[in-house]
Every structure is written in structure tokens, then in C-alpha cells.
């Protein structure tokens, strides 16, 4: 009995010395990564999003036509000659003006993805910093800052953005700014809530004691610790942004010709769907698949990073 114990103890001691076979502690991020990659739907979605991004960057290499060039021959009979076919080089057919739909879909994907990702980025940077600052400073400043958010989020921003587009012209940069500046409000609220729960932790106190400035505490200690929830929210925000841009473009207020986006292509395709269904089908498929995938990735990230699940 006694010897047996001794043997076990010895083995343990050897293991400790050699450092083999000891269970290592896992950080939150490692844990989340493991959980995320076990979620098949999310991984496949991530892969498809990757493919679509590659398509938007390199797709134009395979196009036989440029996105603004009119194929007069195909225009003469859009229903027959403008059909999707490999021989003519119009893989996705032509649009109603005889332009190559493949090249235009590539171009539209670029714009839609760029709007989605960049404006989410703008929104997240503003929202995170604002929310973290508000939560961290607290007191009267917090009250005023949150009251501002409250008032702003009670405005019908969809309408304000469209108004902005009308009055200052249809510039793509304006879409970024307008959408991004509008959608940071929820982010700010979420981050503030998280910050409030973090700011009384010991390591923040330690940073205070070391004489770290307030701004640096916010940027170096608070922001990285709310990153998890920010990431989840971002992955759900991007499809929202893509949809928003498509919505504006569908109304004919978004990107300016000859540039295009998924929404603009869909709105053109809708007009001709009775006899040229492909003009609607291709951009629609891209939009819907992208939205699906981003939603699955978002769900996967939430499951992976949600502290309640631990």
C-alpha cells in the first residue's frame, strides 16, 4: 500500500521534472478557438466567406469583358444571346444593357463586402471606445454620454441616411461614414455594460496603483477584455451592413453607375426577372449565401465566446 503510493508520487515527480503529460491551462481564446472549430456549420461558412472574398478580389482575372463594357452583339437579343454560357464568355449572362454580368457581379461583391466590413469597422472602433470611456469614467459624464446615445438611437436613422445620400450626392465614401456613424450606438451600449463589470477587477486597480493614465487603462486593459463580445457583435453586424447597403442601392440611392453592388444588381434584375431570370438569380445567390454564412459564423462565435457557456 505504502509502496504503491510512493511509486505514484515518484512518477508524478518525474513527470513534473520532464514537463511531459501535464495538462496545460487553456486561455479563454484557445478555448474559444477549439469550440469554434468544432462547430461544423460555422467552419464551413467561414470557408465559403473566404471563397467569396477571393472571388471578389481575383474573379476579374477570369472575366472576358470589363464590367462597364457593352457587348452590342449580345444586346441585340438579350434573352437568347445574353444567356449565361461558357462559349460567349458571359458566364453569368449579360445585364439588360449588354454588360457582362460575371464582371459586374465581381465588382458588386467588392463594393458590398467592402461596405459591410469597413463600415462595421468604423462602427466598432467608435462604439468600443465611446462605450469603454463612458463606462470607465462613470458618474455624471457617463450619464450625459449615455443620454446622448439614447437620444440618437431614438431617431429613425434609416431615413436620415437616405436623406444624407440625397442631399450630398451618392458617394461611396459617404455610405461608409453614414452607415458606420449610425450603427455604433448599440456597440457603445454593450461595451459600456461590459466595462462596468470589468472596471472593479484587481488588475485595473493594480494599473491605477502603478500610475497608468486613464486613457491607457481604457485602451490597454479594458478594450482587449471586451474584445470577445465585440467580435461576436461584429460578425453579426457585417451582414446587417451588407443588407443596409443593398437596401439603399435597391432604391437607386446607393452606388453610382457604372459601379455596382449586390443590391443594385438585384434591383436591376427584378425588372427583367420575367424573361431573364439569371439577371436576378446570380447576384441574389451571392447576397443570400453571404448573409447566411455570416450569420452562421456569428452564431458559432457567440457559442464559442459566450462566458455563460463555459
Amino acid at each position: 500500500m505504502f509502496f504503491k503510493h510512493k511509486k505514484v508520487a515518484q512518477e508524478l515527480a518525474e513527470q513534473l521534472e520532464s514537463g511531459v503529460g501535464i495538462i496545460e491551462g487553456r486561455s479563454l481564446w484557445q478555448d474559444a478557438k477549439r469550440r469554434f472549430f468544432r462547430n461544423k456549420a460555422a467552419v464551413v461558412s467561414l470557408f465559403i466567406i473566404g471563397l467569396i472574398i477571393l472571388f471578389s478580389i481575383f474573379g476579374s482575372q477570369f472575366a472576358q469583358y470589363s464590367y462597364e463594357e457593352i457587348d452590342w452583339f449580345a444586346l441585340s437579343d438579350p434573352v437568347e444571346l445574353g444567356r449565361p454560357s461558357i462559349e460567349t464568355g458571359h458566364y453569368f449572362g449579360t445585364d439588360k444593357l449588354g454588360r457582362d454580368l460575371y464582371a459586374r457581379t465581381v465588382q458588386g461583391s467588392q463594393i458590398s463586402l467592402m461596405v459591410g466590413i469597413l463600415s462595421s469597422f468604423v462602427a466598432i472602433v467608435i462604439g468600443t471606445l465611446y462605450g469603454a470611456a463612458s463606462g470607465f469614467i462613470g458618474g455624471r459624464v457617463d450619464m450625459v454620454m449615455m443620454r446622448i446615445v439614447e437620444i440618437l438611437s431614438a431617431l429613425p436613422f434609416m431615413f436620415m441616411v437616405i436623406m444624407l445620400m440625397v442631399m450630398f450626392g451618392r458617394q461611396i465614401i459617404l455610405i461608409f461614414v453614414a452607415i458606420g456613424a449610425v450603427s455604433w450606438l448599440d456597440m457603445a451600449r454593450i461595451v459600456r455594460g461590459q466595462t462596468l463589470s470589468i472596471k472593479n477587477k484587481e488588475y485595473i486597480e493594480a494599473a491605477h496603483a502603478c500610475g497608468v493614465s486613464q486613457w491607457r487603462i481604457v485602451v490597454r486593459h479594458i478594450v482587449p477584455n471586451v474584445m470577445g463580445i465585440v467580435l461576436v457583435y461584429a460578425s453579426l453586424m457585417i451582414p446587417g451592413m451588407i443588407m443596409f447597403e443593398s437596401f439603399i442601392s435597391f432604391l437607386g440611392l446607393g452606388v453610382q453607375e457604372p459601379e455596382t453592388s449586390w443590391g443594385a444588381l438585384i434591383s436591376e434584375g427584378v425588372v427583367t426577372m420575367e424573361f431573364a431570370l439569371w439577371q436576378l438569380a446570380f447576384p441574389l445567390t451571392f447576397l443570400v449565401i453571404t448573409l447566411f454564412c455570416f450569420n452562421f459564423v456569428g452564431d458559432g462565435l457567440r457559442d464559442a465566446l459566450d462566458p455563460k457557456e463555459r
Binding site: P239, M243, S246, F247, F250, G263, I266, S267, G269, V270, M273, L280, L284, L287, V288, L291, F292, N295
Partner: peptide, 10 residues
Amino acid sequence: IVLPTFVMAP
């Protein structure tokens, strides 16, 4: 959820 109104309608 992924089918917005402007897709649903057509």
C-alpha cells in the same frame, strides 16, 4: 432572416 424584404417581394 437572411432574405430581406427587397428579396422576398420579387
